[in-house]
Amino acid sequence: MQANGGAVADEGEAKKTGWGTLGHQWITAIAALVTALTGAGFFVGRASAPSTPAQPAPVTATVTVTAGAAGGAPVSNGHAPPRSSPSNTPDAYFTGPVTFGSINLDLNPPAEGDENDIADHFGSDLFTAGESRMRVWIDDGVPGRDDCSRLAAADGTNQLDSLHAGSIVCGITAKGRPFRLTVRVSAASDLVTDAVVWNA
Rank of each mutant, 00 (worst) to 15 (best):
D117W: 10
K175T: 08
G23H: 09
V136M: 11
S76W: 01
T173L: 08
G5Q: 01
T173Q: 01
A36W: 07
N116W: 05
S167A: 15
T28P: 09
T21S: 15
L105M: 07
A73C: 08
T38V: 07
E112R: 04
G5D: 15
F127R: 01
P109G: 03
F179L: 05
A92N: 08
A54Q: 08
F100D: 07
V75L: 10
W19G: 03
G41N: 05
R135N: 13
T193N: 04
C148Y: 10
A32D: 03
A165L: 02
D117T: 03
G18N: 14
D117H: 04
H164M: 10
D140A: 14
P50M: 12
D125E: 14
T28L: 02
A200K: 14
P50C: 00
V44Q: 11
V65R: 00
N77D: 15
V75R: 02
P86W: 02
S51Y: 05
A111Q: 09
L151C: 10
D106W: 07
F43A: 09
D161N: 14
T17A: 15
A40L: 13
Q55R: 07
N88P: 00
L33C: 11
T66S: 14
G72L: 04
C170A: 14
L163G: 08
V59A: 14
A153Y: 01
K16Q: 15
D120C: 06
S186T: 03
T52V: 15
A80R: 00
D10E: 15
T35W: 03
V183F: 08
I103H: 01
T52L: 06
T157A: 08
D114H: 07
D190A: 14
A9P: 00
A111M: 06
R184K: 11
P81Q: 14
P82C: 11
G113P: 03
K16E: 11
G18M: 04
R150M: 10
A188Q: 01
D147S: 11
V192N: 08
A67N: 08
A119L: 12
G78H: 04
S84R: 12
G6F: 07
L33V: 06
L151F: 00
T157N: 03
G96E: 10
D194N: 13
G45T: 09
N199P: 09
V44N: 09
G141F: 00
S51R: 15
T35R: 11
L160R: 07
E112P: 06
W26L: 10
P74G: 00
T21Y: 09
V142H: 01
D106P: 05
D155H: 12
N88T: 08
L151Y: 00
A69K: 04
